[in-house]
Simulated assay, not measured.
Amino acid sequence: MHFQHSSDIWRDFPQLVPAVIYAEGITADVTPDARIAAYAGRATARLATASEGELPEIQAWRRTFSAMGLKPTQYRCASESLLRRFRKEGALPRLHPLIDLCNAISIAYAIPIAVFDVSRIMQFVEVRYATGEETYLTFSGETEHPPAQEVIFADAEGRAHARRWTNRQSGLSAVQATTANVLIVAEALHDTAAEDIGSLVTTLTDDLNTLWPVTPKHTILTPASPRFDFTGE
């Protein structure tokens, strides 16, 4: 199995810095509360001096959404949506230890993080422009067809596992209590993206190794090295 961005995505967004992590042996019986609290504290400190929409990480995604023809205050990137909810409610809902951890790291860094159950993916995931023929399963069980040119995460069977560049993750491959093997993707486009993505990967892989423990495989992709190969079972 593998993960990659299409050449069109690299052409249109050359500032993109994506990191990919693959981990086996995830369980739902871990308690990451202390780490979640620490990352929430970092987010709180940042929001004390600026709103989420003023953060450079979020501003870069807003520009990207505008370039895709989406209204950035109508369709917010995943990290902005989480930060907005966190600012209003003071906490994020608990869903699964891994998702809770990734959401907390996402608001600490203001960088979107997507997590996929690898057992629900066919052969590969490619971030690319939709053709209009792909299918997307909502969390309520409805099937949608992303319009042509929307940025999606698609597998070999034309199933979209995320819409609007991680703005909406599919109910098909969302992490569940039975999930064991996961693919984690973090992407940034701001000026210090390379440095911040590197720090995020170190933080998340250390947490994965400590909490479960697992030995994640990871890399940061570039136009010259755009593909990440992983086992996937």
Rank of each mutant, 00 (worst) to 15 (best):
R163E: 00
R159E: 11
V201M: 09
G25R: 05
A37Y: 01
P216T: 06
T44Y: 08
T215D: 12
Q4F: 08
V182D: 02
I26H: 03
P216R: 01
M1T: 10
L183N: 00
E187S: 13
V182H: 02
P146F: 05
L55I: 03
R94E: 09
A110T: 04
G158R: 05
P32M: 08
D8E: 15
P112S: 00
Y22S: 10
P93H: 05
S173M: 05
T215I: 12
R128Q: 07
D191S: 12
W212L: 05
P56H: 02
G232R: 08
H5S: 10
R42K: 14
R87H: 13
A78H: 13
Y39S: 08
R120Q: 13
S7A: 14
F124S: 08
I152M: 09
I36S: 00
I197T: 00
V118G: 01
D33G: 06
E57A: 14
S225K: 11
H218T: 08
Q59M: 09
R159C: 10
A37C: 02
D117I: 02
A148R: 15
D33M: 04
A188H: 03
V17W: 00
T215E: 10
T143N: 04
S79W: 01
V115N: 00
T202A: 14
D191Q: 13
D117C: 00
M1S: 09
R46H: 11
Q59E: 13
L208D: 01
Y22M: 04
Q169W: 06
R35C: 10
R163N: 04
V118C: 11
N181M: 00
T210N: 11
L16K: 15
V201D: 06
G41V: 03
T44E: 12
E24F: 04
A186Y: 01
Q74R: 13
G25N: 07
A23E: 03
A108L: 01
A108W: 04
P32H: 03
T210H: 09
H96C: 02
I36D: 04
K217G: 12
T231I: 14
T138R: 04
T143C: 05
A37N: 07
L137T: 07
S173D: 02
S7M: 12
N209G: 15
G158A: 04
A91Y: 09
V201Y: 04
P223I: 01
Q176K: 15
E24A: 13
R35K: 11
P146K: 05
P213S: 04
H145S: 13
S173V: 02
Y75V: 15
F228G: 00
A38D: 12
T44A: 11
Q149L: 12
R159P: 07
P32R: 05
E157M: 13
R35Y: 15
P56F: 06
E187P: 02
R227S: 04
Y39C: 11
T179W: 06
Q4I: 00
A37F: 06
H190P: 01
E134C: 01
G53Y: 15
I26F: 05
